[in-house]
């Protein structure tokens, strides 16, 4: 609790200080100031609790869930996603895999568990967000190493690259519009070059992240959905092929980088 109060006091002070000069340097300063204090710790705890809580008609925990390293193996699982699973014969991201485990192991209804994967402003975080945050923390410091051995995983990368450059909508925006050049920014927001290893590693490794401006932890799935909102496209669905393909493109470009998340962002 003490930790939380300190964090929020610093946050309030910082928010006053950055009204005008909200550039990346200031965010870096804020992160330094916070040190290891990231409000995401509460979400991490919540995610761990949820993993071990019996839920659904089968009153089962998620301990039998195989995230690719064997049932219940959570340490280091995050950094191997997206990956191919033989039991579903599909390349899955972590969010899609969690949904699979909730419906099969816990016997929960697919529509119910996917109805609202990402919280809205002012909400408490969702179950998916909490689980992803905890599992990311279970890979903190690990090397990003998505699987690319199965043909379906390699095809997913190629598809992701193609979607990354796909221009559409009234503004002709693609992911590449903002994310294929280095050292660029929108207004004051720095943009990672996701076609480069350095940019992809920084971006992929720092999500999920506690978004200070929203008071919520956000996952990479949410990040992509919100990018497409800004691209003026329709809404990207969690666990969809396009979402998994783009995450594969990013994760593979990031391979060899270090998982630093759950991070702390503007």
């Amino acid at each position: 609790m003490k930790k939380r109060n300190l964090g929020f006091t610093l946050l309030a002070a910082w928010l006053c200080a950055v009204q005008i000069a909200a550039d990346d340097g200031v965010f870096d300063q804020y992160r330094d100031l916070m040190g290891d204090d990231n409000p995401a710790v509460f979400v991490i705890d919540e995610g761990e609790e949820l993993w071990f809580s019996p839920q659904g008609p089968k009153s089962a925990t998620l301990e039998a869930c195989d995230l690719g390293l064997g049932p219940g193996e959570t340490a280091g699982a995050y950094v191997r996603f997206p990956r191919y699973f033989a039991d579903t014969d599909a390349v899955m991201d972590l969010e899609a895999r969690l949904v699979h485990c909730m419906t099969t192991i816990q016997g929960r209804d697919l529509e119910t568990v996917t109805a609202k994967p990402y919280s809205l402003r002012g909400d408490f975080g969702t179950e998916i967000e909490a689980l992803v945050t905890w599992l990311a923390a279970e890979s903190e410091g690990a090397t990003i190493a998505p699987e690319q051995t199965h043909a379906a995983e390699r095809a997913m990368y190629t598809l992701g690259e193609e979607i990354f450059f796909y221009r559409a909508g009234p503004h002709d925006f693609s992911c590449a519009t903002c994310h294929e050049q280095s050292d660029m920014r929108i207004r004051l927001q720095a943009l990672p070059d996701l076609t480069s290893h350095a940019g992809a590693a920084e971006a992929w490794g720092s999500w999920p992240a506690y978004r200070i401006s929203q008071g919520l932890v956000r996952t990479m799935g949410w990040r992509l959905r919100d990018c497409f909102r800004q691209q003026r496209w329709p809404e990207l669905q969690m666990g969809s092929e396009a979402s998994i393909a783009l995450q594969t493109y990013m994760a593979v470009n990031a391979a060899g980088g270090i998982m630093t998340g759950p991070g702390l962002k503007r």
Partner: peptide, 14 residues
């Protein structure tokens, strides 16, 4: 198959 229409952001935009 990956997107759904939302308000004015209709599927024909793809």
């Amino acid at each position: 198959n990956s997107f759904i229409a939302k308000n004015q952001a209709t599927m024909d935009r793809l």
